[in-house]
Amino acid sequence: MSLTRAQVEQTAASIAAMQEPSGAVPWTPGEHTDVWNHLESAMALMVGGQRDAAERAFAWARASQRRDGSWPLKIVVGEVEDHSGETNMSAYVAVATWHHWLVARDEAFVRLMWPTVRRALDFVVSMQLPFGGIAWSQEWHDGAPAKVNADALLAGSSSIYHSLRAGVALAELVGEPQVEWELVGGRLGHALREHRDLFLDKSQFSMDWYYPVLGGAVRGPEAHALVAERWDTFVEPGLGIRCVSQDPWVTGAETCELVMALDAIGDRARALQLLADMQHLRTDEGSYWTGYVFPDDVNWPVEQTTYTAAAVILAVDQVTDGTPGADIMRGTTLAADFAELGLECGCPSGGASADRVAGVAGRTT
């Protein structure tokens, strides 16, 4: 079971209804906005025919970006509650902008967003750690960047890998190649494929399980093997997937992200089944409960979140090829996988795209 076009539009309208006058899209009305989930909602609004609302969301992102390229971690109705800059969240503007390009083919919009994307990814690549992962955040004090939290999150770095491929695609579109992003991406991809033990251990969260596949760093037989490793730990047949391995709680956003990861590696039957399984979270108004505690037969938390609705829309778009944006997680329109160059782990450097990186470097020197 998937959704009809009318149902997708109804769900997009439920997101638009929660958008603040500033353009910010909070998790729920009165709750906080973070730029990653905000931009995911902008992408879903584009798919669901709410382009004006989507572009107000992009305008908010341009206006709220800080001089170092980051965004505050948590903003509540225009007031910053957590000033920290998270790398994963900042990087995602590249994915959202490339998605807009796929859907609308509006080059003027891409050029409008390009300075924001460039600042964001320059901030992110400056946070790469010696083993290749990306430091997960930087604190702010007295209105300025401060201590870097120098550990890397596997899910966050996997999403950054996806963002770097989108960023390099945008750079090529606007004619401003970014060789440093490609070099950082090569080292990051290697870490995600070969050194997952060096990231912070968050293995109780399902996101750490499937995100290396969703972000595109792990593909082919290795991706299928990675999915198989913890399928029985997280998947609850007929309901969706657990957010946390030890809790009897399935969540819609994580389920839909796994749907997209499965579809990206050709596992369409299970992708479609999981998408159907999570529809018990849908309301008559087209919004979605965040999750469901199955021993108690209750939706929890008692909220319908924009990011859950957005994940549903993007998953439906992908499995139905509803818009050209359906490729955003499959990644065939993104920049090629990055060459593994300049590794500091002692592994041999290489990769199919090494010649491509060298060629770009030659054009820019």
Rank of each mutant, 00 (worst) to 15 (best):
I265S: 06
P145K: 03
G346E: 05
S137A: 15
L334V: 09
I160C: 13
A354F: 01
A24S: 07
P145A: 08
W181G: 00
E20D: 09
L334W: 03
E79V: 15
R67G: 06
E194Q: 06
D247A: 06
M260P: 02
W249P: 05
V293R: 07
L343T: 06
S163W: 02
F109D: 14
W289P: 00
P145L: 11
P295Y: 09
G362N: 14
D327Q: 05
G156P: 03
L3S: 07
G286D: 02
G342L: 00
D267R: 01
A171C: 11
D317S: 08
F338T: 08
L173T: 03
H32W: 02
W27P: 09
A276R: 10
V312K: 02
Y92V: 14
A361D: 10
V179Q: 06
F123Q: 12
L183A: 07
L45G: 10
L129G: 01
R165W: 08
V93F: 04
R56Q: 07
L112F: 10
S349I: 06
H224K: 11
A44V: 11
W98H: 13
P26S: 11
V35W: 00
G331I: 14
I75S: 12
A146Y: 02
F234G: 14
E107F: 07
S126L: 11
L198S: 02
D247S: 12
E340K: 08
A152T: 10
A42L: 07
T28L: 10
S349H: 01
L226P: 11
R356F: 06
A57R: 04
H190L: 00
L188G: 02
P348G: 06
S126T: 15
S2P: 05
P248M: 10
V124S: 14
G175N: 11
A339E: 10
